[in-house]
């Protein structure tokens, strides 16, 4: 790694940490999302430095693009305002910071500790690296995990449709009947749910 690369890495690392930190402390979820995009893009750039250009592109396209767009879309869909975060007890915050810091430290320690020649260290950037090699590996050696992953996506897709679909009229009545006599908070929540649903199209479209 040359000096120039090092400097680039440091700058990008600072940007990535800054983005992550701002995501953590931002009040408004939209701000958080945008800072996370910043952090992800910086990470993508680091991938470039680490001889992984294809991953970098995918990172930008899928992560910073698709996934984050989904986040923002949900926020818009639900028309969310700023988060009403109430601060925790001071002691709890201290313990939380200690736990998280300790975890990071220990992960790093564990990761860099490579005693002796247990790990073969390759020579710098990957020689003769081609994008097609990823494709060959993906559909060759890793064919089974690849297909499993596709199945996972399918299941997730179906699952989401089932989870989010509006309740059928019968189920709604049942839920309402079951909740009579429940606490007022729950009753209010149910009522709110019904109000939201009533603005949506009919059940048949939901399927």
């Amino acid at each position: 790694m040359s000096l120039a690369t090092l400097i680039a890495f440091v700058v990008l690392a600072v940007v990535a940490v800054f983005g992550g930190f701002r995501m953590l402390v931002s009040r408004h979820p939209v701000h958080s999302a945008l800072y996370l995009v910043l952090s992800l893009v910086a990470t993508a750039a680091i991938y470039l430095l680490l001889a992984a250009p294809f991953v970098a592109v995918v990172q930008v396209a899928v992560y910073a693009g698709a996934i984050m767009v989904l986040f923002v879309f949900v926020m818009m869909f639900l028309n969310l305002g700023p988060a009403q975060d109430v601060h925790d007890q001071r002691q709890r915050r201290i313990v939380t910071f200690a736990a998280a810091g300790l975890l990071g430290l220990l992960i790093w320690l564990g990761a860099i500790w490579r005693p002796g020649a247990a790990v073969t260290v390759g020579g710098g950037a990957l020689p003769g690296y081609k994008v097609e090699e990823i494709g060959v590996n993906m559909l060759g050696r890793y064919a089974l995990p690849f297909e499993t992953a596709s199945l996972l996506l399918l299941v997730a897709m179906v699952g989401v449709v089932v989870i989010v679909r509006p309740l059928l009229a019968a189920e709604r009545r049942q839920a309402a009947a079951g909740e009579t006599g429940a606490t007022t908070a729950e009753a209010a929540a149910t009522a709110a749910g019904l109000v939201v649903e009533s603005t949506e199209p009919s059940e048949e479209v939901g399927h």
């Binding site: 890495f9 690392a13 990535a16 940490v17 992550g20 930190f21 995501m23 953590l24 931002s26 979820p29 958080s32 999302a33 996370l36 952090s39 990470t43 680091i46 680490l50 986040f71 949900v74 926020m75 969310l80 988060a83 975060d85 109430v86 925790d88 915050r93 939380t96 910071f97 736990a99 998280a100 810091g101 975890l103 990071g104 430290l105 992960i107 790093w108 990761a111 860099i112």
Partner: peptide
């Protein structure tokens, strides 16, 4: 160095999950 960056980002994520109450921000973490 890269692993150090990775550990730092991971810790920030952990903190986000543990400290924030907003479900979406927890997801982002």
């Amino acid at each position: 160095l890269v692993l150090a960056l990775s550990a730092i980002l991971f810790s920030i994520g952990v903190l986000g999950v543990l400290l924030r109450r907003h479900v979406l921000i927890i997801y982002m973490s």
